[in-house]
Nucleic acid binder design. Sequence first.
DNA 1: GCTAAAAGTTAGACGAAGCTAACAATCTGC
DNA 2: GCAGATTGTTAGCTTCGTCTAACTTTTAGC
Lengths: 152, 152
Amino acid sequence: MTHVDHQAIDAAEPEARAGDARAEAFQGVRAARRNELAEDYVELIAELIHTQGEARPVDIATKMGVTAPTVAKTLDRLARDGLITRAKYRSVFLTEEGRALAKECRHRHEIVLRFLIRLGLDPETAEHDAEGIEHHVSERTLALFAAFANRS
Amino acid sequence: MTHVDHQAIDAAEPEARAGDARAEAFQGVRAARRNELAEDYVELIAELIHTQGEARPVDIATKMGVTAPTVAKTLDRLARDGLITRAKYRSVFLTEEGRALAKECRHRHEIVLRFLIRLGLDPETAEHDAEGIEHHVSERTLALFAAFANRS
DNA sequence: GCTAAAAGTTAGACGAAGCTAACAATCTGC
DNA sequence: GCAGATTGTTAGCTTCGTCTAACTTTTAGC
Ligand SMILES: [Mn+2]
Ligand SMILES: [Mn+2]
Ligand SMILES: [Mn+2]
Ligand SMILES: [Mn+2]
């Protein structure tokens, strides 16, 4: 467990062709990028289920700022990847795996957000930046962020 | 200038459909994502020109950890977007605009890296994480990172 | 219980970013 | 200055993530 992996879903991009340390870093970033969308979706779905009782595609679309067909296609991919289950014209459910990923993402998001605020950032900007940064923070960095956020 | 924009190249994704603050954050992240690759390329090209005297596609491919055809196609896009110039079978040059972007990216990369190391991260991991985080750091956050990195 | 609005789906387009296979140009070492 | 190695290009395939347009199903209000 070196870089950002978070029990990644992967399968794509033939690794190995490493050699260069730089190349490895870029490959790690590309791997993280492939999971970003899934992470944001399951995190949002968990939140909707918690606050609204259910996760409807229309609400996902609104919160994500995309159109309904985009959500539909993305949900199909998440289902294919075993993170959610869904039935036609019904709202969405997380699988065990999806729930685990959501929890992990929520946790990471929370730490990055608190860290940025602790650093002195306004909550608005902190929320924006955390939404992007959270996917590129290794376990080590996360631990340091948490320590900083919790320091008295 | 709210979130990550760094004089972004954009043009895609019809904004406006905001309303929700969350949606705006996600749209910002997607916008940042669209510039990531261009940023990494121009930064690397600038570095190669500086250290090797020229930026050859084969070296870009090695450092980025991708194949030569992938580099070729990406370079075509960068040329289309006015960041580089290139001639068949020759190495790559940055335009004025590309040079400006490279400088900005280098600067951002440097600050994020120094910040992470200052936080207590090992240089290895710091380099990996910085490569991903740099694209999702707003001006405000960058300023705080710089201040933290430079504090006595 | 109809009907109109809301929500969801399907089809199809498009660009980005990756790959492999095959070919072409350039460089290098003798 | 030629041959073989290296580098670069082209063609074509794939998946992802976005969109619009058109259609279907469900829900809600009367
Ligand atoms: Mn996010
Ligand atoms: Mn998040
Ligand atoms: Mn980078
Ligand atoms: Mn960089």
